[in-house]
Write a protein that binds this DNA or RNA. Structure first.
Lengths: 165, 165
DNA sequence: GTTAGTGCAAACCTTTTGCAGCTCT
DNA sequence: AGAGCTGCAAAAGGTTTGCACTAAC
């Protein structure tokens, strides 16, 4: 169970495993999606209504610092918040459809090659990497074209969804 | 000059070239660095003290939308603000030293290969990409080690009371 | 003259901080 | 017992919006 693994690894560093942290770790590990702080908070409150938003932020910060989770921006698709995922062994890129918001993950040798080349070329010691690719998924490409045609007809440009506003 | 090129390209889209926009375009194009909104605002005010911060944000948004500038996060090195650069013909990664903040740019075939593979593999239509790599530059690696050693020494002068003394 | 763009103030969203009290070890 | 963690309130940082006025075309 990944949550337990993280728990152990944290415990060894002298970090206390509180009820709140267990809940949050399980959610980050268990949910198949990339959660942002607010969504994580919402889910966590279902398990413990007293759990505070601040605790979510503090826990995320700690996990980030400890290298247990990675922080993503997902091309700011949904706004300026950050998304989180448990750190995998293998590097991968995130591919975000700017129309439907679907996120794909790409594991491939260009990423490892990039890493190696950067280390060699600059003598750089890499700690974290983030590769994000935005555009339209195969499904949305046709739909997008139709949208644009309609937009021209109606002179009403379609904006992508935002949380604010 | 790039500012003029951008200006023309904008004009063709029916965007008005105001004094404020000229100033901002020149700054983004001319400065060798990656500026964030606040720094851009500061520099712009030197040329026109009446220019408003909001205009900076609105102009950046427009340029982003128009594909004339790219938005970077630089691994949130300096906080949660965004940085901007004029869009180059060639894709490149940003390599950020998390100690000194120095930013290197890497142009290399892994990036083109990544792009091609993602397009082929997912049938994805790529609009923008962002690759950021954080770590320690060659210069800072040694300094970082020394910092850590000193931190340990100052933490535990004679003994090393891990849990209690 | 139109219409897009600006400045100003105020709102907004996300994240952080200070502090008193609670809890894990 | 005591450092570490939590909750609450409040603030901070970065960005956006509403509206009346101004300026580019």
């Amino acid at each position: 169970m990944p949550a337990t693994a993280s728990g152990n690894s944290l415990r060894e560093r002298g970090v206390r495993i509180t009820r709140q942290r267990q809940i949050l770790l399980e959610l980050i590990d268990g949910s198949g999606k990339h959660l942002d702080a607010e969504e994580l908070y919402r889910l966590a409150k279902e398990k413990d209504p007293k759990l505070n938003r601040v605790t979510v932020y503090r826990t995320l910060k700690m996990l980030k610092k400890g290298g247990l989770v990675d922080e993503l921006d997902l091309m700011h698709y949904g706004g300026d918040q950050h998304y989180y995922e448990t750190r995998l062994k293998q590097e991968h890129a995130h591919i975000i459809c700017l129309r439907c918001g679907k996120v794909e993950e790409f594991f491939g040798d260009p990423l490892q090659k990039l890493r190696r080349q950067v280390e060699e070329h600059f003598g750089f010691h890499i700690l974290l990497t983030r590769t994000e690719i935005g555009g339209y998924c195969s499904h949305c490409q046709a739909l997008r074209e139709r949208e644009l045609e309609q937009a021209v007809e109606q002179d009403a440009p379609a904006e992508r969804p935002r949380k604010r506003g």
